[in-house]
Design a protein around this nucleic acid. Structure first.
Length: 662
RNA sequence: GCCAACAUAGCUUAGCUGGUAGAGCGGCUGAUUUGUAAUCAGCAGGCCGGGAGUUCAAAUCUCUCUGUUGGCUCCA
């Protein structure tokens, strides 16, 4: 007899040899939604035979743990189907991931048609209700079983200790090395969909075998899967690359270059409004705005450390033409030229990868006293970085971008307060734009690493300042060791977009390194020289990435103050053009961005055309409006409002714009 | 940078296994003067991403470059 605790403290008696699955079915019913069992706090298969005195709880398919198991099992199901259709395919690893799973196979590339075929086979296997069975073997037996799959052998070499043995899971003829647990039968894996294929490397190492990766979604219920599909379709509609084209917000031109954004007039309005918005807060917070050039001498970046240490992510340096010609005549190769520059033998210019060196030279241009601090230098500074070609995407991963950058030169005592001020700014900005789904990450140094600059006591103090500031925000934050910059700890703001992707936007970083490298100082109250500390901060991160994320956040429907065209005026017929001009003039006089459509299209056609551009307001003007001096409009909610006096409408929209209501 | 797929008019796209391009929207012109998600007609617009090759013949096959997409890797 076994005494088994089920749930809180109900003890049930079972016969010897009873499995966890039997207990769960007995207590919670056949349709419990359980995929596996938690026995004394450890996850096990349903088939696990219980011992006396154990506690059993079901792991439900809609719990985090349950979904993990479901998705993991679904990866096995995929592998079974692939191996059945492509017997030469060698499964490697197949973990669950957010929303689903993937599995990497060593095989020839497959087509979309193959993918459909695999999915069909998976569904057949589900219908066949094939039991998934756990078997345990010693190392020798396992090596024999997977002798034809070098990847599984390598996993055993890495993960399984001598003599430890491990488990395999068998479903039909398919056997996979796995710790489990898994669902008891393929019939439980109903709500999945294969989404895409891609390639990856064995152990993510480019020098190793290239593998075919198949991605899929998997959920506990039909509803969850459908919801996810709907969300993904919705997300695709909001893709800033598509909306950017449709709404004429920006353009990327093959002839200009990869990852280089051309801001078209409509997009430039959005950017300009955002910059004005930030600038108003900069004035409030006592910043000084500066301008610095797009390039600087190599020596500047040798001093800052950017040139020697981050060469692979910079555009190559610019060299004077005469010098280049002379070197070419002397038969100097590119490699030699590069070496000469590295050694500082010849001078060149670099497209700036960061604004800080320029700002530092502004600080250093005058002797500074403690009375000057904090000195806050802000610039919408454009920087260039050589992102890898495969990484470039839309506005969010680019090679040239403008940071809403600032560098604060502070005394050590001022760090905490100034960091707090930076964070407050980020919070105001996110709040205004209604970006609520974000998390805060405090990047601390890795205690075991020696790559960091500066004394441990200073780090402790700076890290504590970041922690305190994050805590003061009132939103949950994580502390992540090893995520600090090499020169100091940082606070990152990570926003989650509609696709569920996370974007690192705002950042605040404390820096002890650059003041040291540039030998910055100020005279303290004691008359002695002291070293200032720098704070780098960019609430948006970059204008490009931020606008890209904003386009998706708003689905192209910007709040009125950001809308490229705030009011589209549509006339019913040509009789109303004069009145439309009058309304247009009144709105323009109130600084409202107006677009007129006095063409001979029908009102239905005009509405269709103009709705597509997603303006904040659509005004419809006909006899009724012209005769009464009113407007009829559809606002951001697209509810129709009729007969509003023109003056009232102008006053309302003006107030909405100046309040920057989201 | 690596792997794979893709690139036809401003946009969305048709063009099967080679026989030098068709449409819708948009644009222009004319008719129409319209009250809530496409009024009608006509016209213009393409060396099929660039270059090279195979072939009597290439949008179509091959190579290469550029770019895009999805991943991998990287990210001060």
């Amino acid at each position: 007899m076994l005494n088994i605790t089920v749930g809180k403290d109900a003890i049930h008696e079972y016969a010897d040899g009873t499995t966890a699955g039997e207990v769960i079915r007995n207590v919670h019913g056949k349709k419990s939604g359980a995929v596996a069992a938690l026995i004394d706090g450890i996850q096990h298969d349903f088939s696990h035979v219980l011992s006396d005195g154990q506690t059993v709880e079901p792991i439900l398919s809609d719990s985090e743990e349950g979904l993990y198991i479901l998705r993991h099992s679904c990866a096995h199901l995929l592998a079974q189907a692939v191996v059945e259709i492509f017997p030469e395919a060698k499964p490697t690893i197949g973990p669950p991931i957010e929303n689903g799973f993937y599995y990497d196979f060593c095989m020839n590339p497959i087509s979309d048609e193959d993918l459909r075929k695999i999915e069909k086979r998976m569904k057949e296997i589900v219908k066949s209700n094939i039991p998934v069975q756990r078997e345990e073997y010693g190392n020798e037996t396992l090596r024999g079983m997977f002798a034809s799959n070098p990847f599984k052998i390598e996993i055993m070499d890495d993960k399984i200790e001598d003599g430890a043995g491990s488990s395999v899971y068998r479903q039909g003829d398919f056997v996979d090395l796995c710790r489990g647990p898994h669902v008891p039968t393929t019939a439980m894996l109903r709500w999945f969909k294969l989404t895409s294929t891609s390639t990856s490397y064995w152990k993510a190492d480019a020098s190793r075998e290239s593998l075919v990766r198949i991605y899929g979604w998997c959920f506990a219920t039909k509803q969850d899967l459908q919801n996810h599909e709907t969300m993904m379709r919705e997300a695709a509609k909001r893709d800033h690359r598509k909306l950017g084209k449709d709404l004429q917000l920006f353009h990327i031109d093959e002839m200009v270059g990869q990852g280089l954004i051309l801001w078209t007039p409509r997009g430039s309005i959005v950017r300009n409004e955002l910059q004005n918005f930030i600038s108003s807060h900069l004035r409030r917070q006592g910043y000084n705005q500066v301008y610095t050039p797009h390039i600087g001498k190599l020596d500047l970046y040798r001093t800052s450390g950017h040139y020697p240490y981050y060469q692979e992510s910079q555009y190559p340096p610019l060299v004077e033409r005469d010098l280049m010609t002379k070197l070419a005549h002397e038969g100097c190769s590119c490699g030699e030229l590069s070496n000469l520059m590295d050694e500082g033998e010849i001078e060149g210019y670099l497209l700036k990868p960061m604004n800080c060196p320029h700002h530092i030279r502004i600080y250093a241009s005058q002797p500074r006293s403690y009375r000057d601090l904090p000195l806050r230098l802000a610039e919408f500074g454009t920087v260039y970085r050589w992102e890898q070609s495969g990484e470039i995407s839309g506005m969010t991963r680019v090679r040239g971008f403008t940071q809403d950058d600032a560098h604060l030169f502070v005394t050590e005592d001022q760090i905490a307060e100034e960091v707090l001020g930076c964070i407050e700014l980020v919070q105001v900005i996110f709040g205004t734009l209604g970006m609520d789904d974000y998390r805060v990450r405090v990047g601390l140094r890795d205690p075991d690493s020696s790559k960091y600059v500066g004394e441990p006591e200073k780090w402790d103090k700076a890290e504590q300042a970041c922690r305190d500031a994050a805590a003061a925000l009132g939103v949950p934050f994580t502390e992540e060791e090893g995520e600090a910059a090499f020169y100091g700890p940082k606070i990152d703001f990570v926003v989650r977009d509609v696709l569920g992707r996370e974007w690192q936007l705002g950042t605040v970083q404390v820096d002890y390194n650059l003041p040291e490298r540039f030998d910055l100082s100020y005279v303290g109250a004691d008359g002695e020289k002291h070293r200032p500390v720098m704070i780098h901060r960019a609430p948006f991160g970059s204008m490009e990435r931020f606008c890209g994320v904003l386009i998706e956040h708003f689905g192209g429907m910007f709040p009125t103050w950001l809308s490229p065209t705030q009011a589209h005026i549509l006339t019913i017929s040509e009789k109303h053009i004069d009145y439309a001009n009058e309304v247009g003039a009144a709105l323009r006089a109130a600084n409202v961005r107006v677009e007129m459509d006095t063409s001979d299209d029908t009102i239905g056609k005009k509405l269709r055309t103009h709705r597509a551009m997603r303006p904040a307001y659509l005004l419809i003007l006909g006899d009724e409006e012209a005769n009464s001096g009113t407007v009829s409009y559809m606002g951001p909610d697209r509810e129709q409002v009729n007969g509003v006096a023109l003056d009232d409408f102008v006053a309302n929209i003006q107030a909405e714009i100046s309040n920057r209501s989201a």
